[in-house]
Simulated assay, not measured.
Amino acid sequence: MSYPSDTTTLVADIGGTNTRVALTRGTDLLSETVSRYRNAEFDSLTQVLEQFIADQGGVDPTAACVAVAGPVHNGTAKMTNLDWAVDEATLARATHAETVAILNDLQAQGHALGHLPDSAHVEIVKGAKSDSNQPQLVVGIGTGFNIAPVHNTPNGRIVTAAEAGHAGLPAVTSQDRALADYVAQEYGFASIEDVLSGRGLSHVYGFLTDGREMTGHEIMQACANNSDPAARETVKLCTRKLGQVIGDLALVQLPFGGIYLVGGVSCALGPYLTEFGMADAMADKGRFSDFVAQFGVYVVQDDYAALIGSAHYLNAAGE
């Protein structure tokens, strides 16, 4: 199918492993155009976008927005887990779009809130009734870990960037401190992302098994199959650590509009978060326990959320 020039926008979600690209009309995602490319098969984002444009019959979008897994500053993105240069000039050349924008991937997820079907949200922790006019918080767990605070104001939505995954890992119990020491000995510093991410699952499994190796995917499979007690203990410990981190973030951000977990690891952990006590770990804040229990937590199960958020960002920027 061909699309007339300047009638569509191009949106992309660049992860550590794959890049998803699609076209939109306004804020409507054209699902038939959604394409996924393995980053290892390309040398640059330019090559991915040129391939997508060719796959779509040489489409000429009027605007383009890419969401990247890494910090963005002055129109330039530094990918955390991928050696690609991403900047507005490169994006404009690759797409021939008149308007271009680069967002952190969690910012794009924040712009998607309120624009996803109800079926995309699974409630994990029932807090007080969430009010979308109040601050919200997106927490991403996948190849890495990060957050994006969301503020809905009379002048529009503001989604601020962060690099929270590289903050220090909280240590409450003696086991927590031993885990932090284990990670620090291996990597020089015990960060949140070293435990709450795909590779973080492997680190925790190694900690619990005196160095045995297993990928995050294998750990989740073994947990589901109940074939390895250490895998279940890994998921249980990661669930508790996630609760601790989210409880801390809730006190910092006060997200009365809800906390939204996104990313592949979030979805994989989702079925175990209630069973393994994430809510209790989250609310274990002494005299502030009842206060933290007010915040609802949801897992977002929508692979296209960052694409949808990018489209809404472009639409709002053009108003």
Rank of each mutant, 00 (worst) to 15 (best):
G16W: 07
R25T: 03
S31Y: 08
I53Q: 12
Q56M: 15
G57M: 14
G57C: 11
C65F: 11
C65M: 12
G70H: 09
P71E: 13
V72Q: 05
N74L: 14
A77L: 03
M79G: 03
E88N: 05
R93S: 03
R93H: 03
E98D: 13
I102V: 06
L113R: 04
S132I: 11
P135G: 04
I147P: 00
A148P: 01
P149N: 15
T153A: 06
A162H: 10
G165Q: 11
G165T: 13
G165N: 12
T173A: 11
S174Y: 13
Q175G: 05
A178S: 08
V183M: 12
A184E: 14
G198P: 01
S202I: 04
F207V: 02
M214R: 10
H217M: 08
E218P: 00
I219V: 02
M220C: 01
Q221R: 07
N226W: 15
D228F: 03
T239V: 09
R240P: 00
Q244G: 00
L251Y: 14
F256T: 10
L261K: 04
E275T: 09
D280P: 00
K285C: 01
R287H: 11
S289T: 09
A293P: 00
V300T: 08
V300Y: 08
V300S: 02
Q301E: 12
Y313Q: 09
